[in-house]
């Protein structure tokens, strides 16, 4: 049976997604690697994977690629897993290529689907900012494979945390890291960086009045999104400049972009990159935003937005 080693960095949604991704390979022996974490977290992992290997936490308890490489490399040597799997997140970007190079494994990065091949692995990933999909493969590797998967691309049926894997503690492998943690900076309350947001609700002048901002704020809150806006909204002082998307504002790369009362001037559209899934709600059927959006709704935003917010909250429970 093939071995898959899953590197866990985030203990909330990620483990189930990675377990789902591992399932693409059929009947496999799955091992989760985690550095640090609590006993209950390890138990949770044991429900998803056949084995959980727990390395000590780095002394500063922060994601340190060099430290993790040192802990994982001996494990790879001993296990010789067919595939190493982790998420293509910021931490993934930090660790995966380094580890793939050091373990001499072909790497398939940022996959949105995975497929097992008799002699290797194939995957689909997005290129050119999501405009094109590419099917890639790595085969006949003597050293095994490495894949990182996109967050949210794999989902697990609810009833799958049924395993009762073993939990094994790993010894600490000492390192003299050439990269050291200094501090974590938490953005000040109120200071938002919409360029890093995955979901944005953008407001245009169709909102008509500052008092109406409340309904989009509620919608953003329900969606777990940040608010963005067009230039006229900033001009009117309804939102701060740090939320303006466009040629004279910020460039954003969200996954979901929901516009409310945005006409779709080229200045505004010029600030949206990365091909997000774009939804437009506007009263004017001829608004250029509908040429750019994936989904369009012509209608009164004052009816639609509160209804949408209500139904989102319903679905999210």
């Amino acid at each position: 049976m093939r071995d898959i080693l899953v590197l866990i960095e985030d203990l909330i949604d990620a483990p189930a997604e990675l377990a789902a991704a591992a399932r693409c390979f059929g009947d496999v022996q799955t091992t989760a690697f985690v550095s640090g974490g609590t006993e209950s977290e390890h138990q949770m992992l044991a429900g998803l994977f056949d084995c959980v290997k727990v390395a000590p936490a780095a002394s500063d308890a922060n994601w340190c690629a060099e430290f993790l490489c040192a802990q994982i490399l001996p494990l790879l040597d001993s296990m010789q897993p067919h595939l190493v799997l982790m998420h293509h997140t910021n931490n993934g970007l930090d660790l995966a290529p380094l580890l793939a190079a050091k373990s001499d494994r072909p790497m398939l990065a940022d996959c949105i689907s995975l497929e097992s091949r008799e002699n290797g692995v194939s995957a689909v990933r997005t290129v050119f900012g999501g405009k094109v999909h590419a099917r890639i493969s790595a085969t006949d590797s003597a050293t095994g494979y490495f894949a990182t998967v996109r967050s949210g691309a794999f989902s697990m049926p609810e009833d799958t945390a049924t395993k009762s894997g073993s939990i094994v503690a790993l010894p600490l492998i000492e390192t003299a890291p050439r990269r050291r943690f200094i501090e974590t900076i938490t953005p000040e309350a109120g200071a938002v960086d919409i360029t890093q947001s995955e979901i944005l609700v953008a407001v245009g002048r169709g909102i008509d009045d500052e008092d109406n901002m409340e309904i989009v704020e509620e919608l953003a809150d329900a969606l777990g999104a940040e608010l963005a806006c067009t230039r006229p909204v900033v001009d009117k002082g309804w939102l701060e400049k740090s939320r303006q998307v466009g040629t004279s504002g910020l460039t954003v790369k969200p996954k979901i972009y929901l516009t409310v009362g945005v006409s779709g001037s080229f200045q505004h559209l010029g600030g949206i990159k990365g091909g997000p899934f774009m939804v437009a709600i506007n009263q004017d059927a001829a608004a250029p935003i509908f040429a750019a959006a994936d989904v369009g709704i012509v209608g009164d935003l004052f009816d639609l937005v509160p209804l949408l917010e209500e139904k989102i909250r319903e679905r999210k429970g």
């Binding site: 293509h88 970007l93 930090d94 995966a96 290529p97 380094l98 580890l99 793939a100 190079a101 050091k102 790497m107 990065a109 940022d110 990933r125 997005t126 290129v127 050119f128 900012g129």
Partner: peptide
């Protein structure tokens, strides 16, 4: 958009 070349070279 894979973000791997820098890490490979570092490795």
């Amino acid at each position: 958009g894979a973000g791997q070349t820098g890490g490979f070279v570092a490795g």
